[in-house]
Design a protein around this nucleic acid. Sequence first.
RNA 1: GGCCCUAUCGUCUAUCGGUUAGGACACAAGCUUCUCAAGCUUGGAAGCCGGGUUCGAUUCCCGGUAGGGUCACCA
Length: 449
Amino acid sequence: MSSIRVRFPPSPTGYCHVGTARMAVLNYLFARKHGGVIIFRSEDTDKERSSREYEEDIIEQLHWLGLSWDEFHRTTELVSTHTKMLQKLIDEDKAYLSEEESKKEPGKMVRVVRMRNPGKVVTFTDIIRGEITFDTTELKDFTIARAIDDPLYNFAVVVDDGEMGITHVIRGEDHISNTPRQILIQEALGYPRPEYAHYPLHLGSDRSKLSKRTGDVAVRSYREKGYLAPALLNYLATLGWTAPSGKEILSLEEMIGEFELTDVHKSGAVFDIEKLNWYNRHYLQAMLAADFAAESNKVLKASFDARGIPWDEAKATGLVPIIRDHISVWDDLRALADKREFDYFFMEPQPDASRIPQKGVSAADTIRHLECVKQLLSALPLSDYADAERIKAAVWEYAGAEGRGAVLWPLRYSLTGLEKSPDPFEVAHLIGKEATLRRIDAALAMLAI
RNA sequence: GGCCCUAUCGUCUAUCGGUUAGGACACAAGCUUCUCAAGCUUGGAAGCCGGGUUCGAUUCCCGGUAGGGUCACCA
C-alpha cells in the first residue's frame, strides 16, 4: 500500500496547453509507478478568467492522451475551508486584514488579507534540483486573499494540498519562486511539507517561452492536425526525461515501469516539432491496418467531397499502402489530397505532351517505347493486374534493354500526369488494366500531334 | 534590476574524474526498379569562457557570460 498522493492542478483559463499535459504526464507516471492517488483539482480561483468550457477541454484532452485520475475537485468549491483557515491565521495574528485602496479598481477601498511574514530564510529540497534557499524577508507581508472569502492561488493551494494530504508536488519551475511563500503559509497553518519536484519548462524554437508565436500550444490543435495521442504522450514524456533503458519509443505502461523523478532533467528543452513528427510517423506505422485505412479514407473523402470529385471507396482503400509511407501526420494526407496528389487514381490525368518523354529522349523513341509497353501490358492477363510485381515483370526486361528511364518515365507520367508519384507498376495495378491501356493510348495520341 | 534555476552536436540527450565524448531527430552523400516517399549504408556536427582542486577534468569548486523563471488584489 502506498500513501503517495499527487495532484493535477490546472487553472481553467485557457484550452489545454501542452505544458498542462506535460505536468499531468509527469505526475501521472510518478503516481502510477508507486501506486499512488491522483487528484484532479481545477484551480478556478480566478473567477474572471476561468470557465467550464476550458475545464472541459482540459479534461477531454488529458483523457485523450490516456491519462486518468482518482478524485476530482474545484478550488472554488472548497472556499469555506479557505475562509476558516484564513480566519484561523488572523485569530492567531499570523495574518491580518488590511484596508487598502484596490489595485484593480483605484479609488475603491478593499480589505485584503496579508500574511504576517516572519521574515526567515527558507530552504527546501527539490527532488530534481537539490537544495534551494530563499530569503523570504523581501516578500514583505504578501497578500493571501482578496477578501476573507476570496483566497488567492498561493493560499488556496496550500490549504487544498494540506487538506487533501498531497505528498508530492510535481510542477514546472515557474512555481519554484512560489514555493517559499507556500512554505510560509504551510508552516503557519501547521501542515506537513510535501516533497517538491520542479521540472524545467519546455521552450519555443528560439529558446523563449513556448507561445502561440513559436508554435502551437493547445493540445487540441495537435489533435486536430492529426497527431496521435500515444505519439504526443511519448514525446511530451521524453522531453525532459530519459528512460534508464535508453529507449525512446515507450508505451504508457513502459514509461510507468521506468519512471523516476530523479531522472527528470534539470535544464529546459526546446519543443521540436520535427521530432514529434518522427514519433507520430512511428505510431502511424504501428496502427492496425484496418484502423489506418478507415481514417485514411475519411480524410481523403473529405477532400474529394469538398472538391466535388466522385468518391470510390475501393480505389481509396487500394491507395492506403501508398499513403501509409508518405505521411507523418494526418494533416500531410489532407495537404496532399488538396494538392490533387491522388486525383489520378480516380480520374483521367492531364499530362503535358512535352513532358511525356524523359529528358534527352526523342518523341519518336518515346512513342516506340510506349507502343511496346502497351503491347506487353495488353498481352498481360487481367488477373495479373492483381499484383504489381507481375506487371513489373512484364515490362522489366524491355525497360532494362532500352533504358529504364526512357521507358519507365513516360509510362509513369502517362498514367499519373505527375512528375513525382509512386512507381508505374503500383499505379497500373491500382487503376487496372483498362485504365492503364486507355491512358497509354491517350499519351500516344498527344505525342502523335 | 533583485532573487532563484540552468549550461555537451542545429535540436533532444548519454557520460555519474580517465571514453576515438555514445545515441536519436534533422541534415548531406551513396545504394535499392525512371521520379517521389520509405528503407539501408556512410558522413559532417558538441563539452560557453576564465580560474582553481586533481596525476588527470565535460564531469567537482569559484567567478564571468548567456538563457530561462519569478518579483500581482493571475495561476
